[in-house]
Computed example of a mutant assay.
Amino acid sequence: MEHLPLIKDNQYLRHFWHPVCTVAELERAKPSSFGPLAVTLLREQLVVARLDGKYVAMRDRCAHRSAKLSCGQVVGSELQCPYHGWKYDAAGACTKIPACPDSPIPNKARVERFDCEEKYGLLWVRLDSSFNCTEIPYFSAADDPKMRIVVQEPYWWNASAERRWENFTDFSHFAFIHPGTLFDPNNAEPPIVPMDRVNGQFRFVYETPPGMDVPDQAPIGTFTYHCSMPFAINLAVEKYSTNSLHVLFNVSCPIDETRTKNFLIFAREQGSDSDHLHIAFNDVVFAEDKPVIESQWPAQMMADEVPVITDKVSVQYRKWMRELSEAARDGAEAFKAALHEPVIESERQYSDLRTV
């Protein structure tokens, strides 16, 4: 039996911002703390570094003899190739060829540079900026002074970014994969929630059942989701147990169609408890999810999978992803409309609602 992918063309993902590493990873890569560091995004081998005070991302391939620039070093404000010492500036242009210093530098002696920015302690890269209508995803706790923010170490799964997103927003799996950890196994029937499309995000609210026997670290309460397309999830939880705010920001970097590098930032209202209690709890929950999500095959979302009514979140997600994939083939205006045109199901009001 032939399994057909739900989305056949994923080139539209190149128009979005994706995280490729933490700032801490880059700083640890070399003694200078400026990199370089090799990363992979959508099968593209990239190098990231800090040059002349700016974070940059380039193709990880010297224009001369194709050595990896990530094996080189930052010298002053330039990136030096390890093979023959060619130097590149922050724009990707070659500035020096040591073997022939008195000859003009060929015009083709440059490497492709991509949009790169730092936000929330992560480095974000956009491979295609031609549509210029996407933003770095929303993290609600970023500028809130009452919140303590922790950037966890990245974690890798042999699963697609789409599967990881669906897992994180799947209400029905809590009772079966996380019984006693995150949920009560007697609460297997979730509600059907209204979902709104606002400013390139899915927004919806899930009131989890009260009174469940779960650890204090479990972020159980009123779940408010802001899911920036395509792979970022901002989950703000008003915890029943402490009447305090807890935010989980999870976003996946699609290394390729079957592998993801995942990032988790969590924030909570200031307290005396240890960060490591929460880090350990998050690790336990993800360890429960990982083998099941990695078992899904094929790794891509398939057209022959059978949905039910309680799969509404993933059904709507798949619908929007298909729309974005198709719109990208029609150009910038079609893609912008597909991403930003509001679709409102709930009765909630949004002061930040933008129209195309």
Rank of each mutant, 00 (worst) to 15 (best):
Leu13Asn: 06
His15Met: 08
Phe16Met: 04
His18Leu: 10
His18Arg: 08
Pro19Tyr: 14
Pro19Gly: 15
Val20Trp: 08
Val20His: 05
Val20Gly: 07
Val20Arg: 01
Val20Thr: 07
Cys21Asn: 05
Cys21Gly: 01
Thr22Gly: 11
Val23Phe: 07
Glu25Asn: 05
Leu26Met: 12
Arg28Met: 09
Arg28Ser: 09
Ala29Ser: 15
Ala29Leu: 01
Ala29Pro: 01
Lys30Thr: 15
Pro31Trp: 00
Pro31Asp: 01
Pro31Asn: 00
Ser32Trp: 01
Ser33Pro: 03
Ser33Cys: 03
Phe34Ser: 15
Gly35Cys: 03
Gly35Arg: 01
Gly35Trp: 02
Pro36Thr: 11
Pro36His: 05
Leu37Val: 04
Thr40Pro: 00
Leu41Asn: 04
Leu41Ser: 12
Leu42Tyr: 05
Arg43Pro: 00
Arg43Gly: 03
Arg43Asp: 15
Leu46Gly: 03
Leu46Ile: 13
Leu46Tyr: 06
Val48Asp: 05
Val48Tyr: 00
Val48Phe: 02
Ala49Arg: 05
Arg50Cys: 13
Leu51Gln: 08
Leu51Lys: 01
Asp52His: 05
Asp52Gly: 15
Asp52Glu: 15
Lys54Gln: 14
Lys54Ser: 14
Met58Val: 11
Asp60Cys: 09
Asp60Tyr: 02
Asp60Arg: 04
Cys62Trp: 08
Ala63Asn: 12
His64Val: 08
Ser66His: 09
Ala67Ile: 04
Lys68Asn: 07
Lys68Tyr: 06
Lys68Cys: 11
Leu69Asp: 05
Leu69Trp: 03
Cys71Asp: 14
Cys71Met: 14
Gly72Cys: 05
Gly72Ile: 11
Gly72Ala: 13
Gln73Leu: 12
Gln73Glu: 12
Val74Ile: 09
Val74Asp: 06
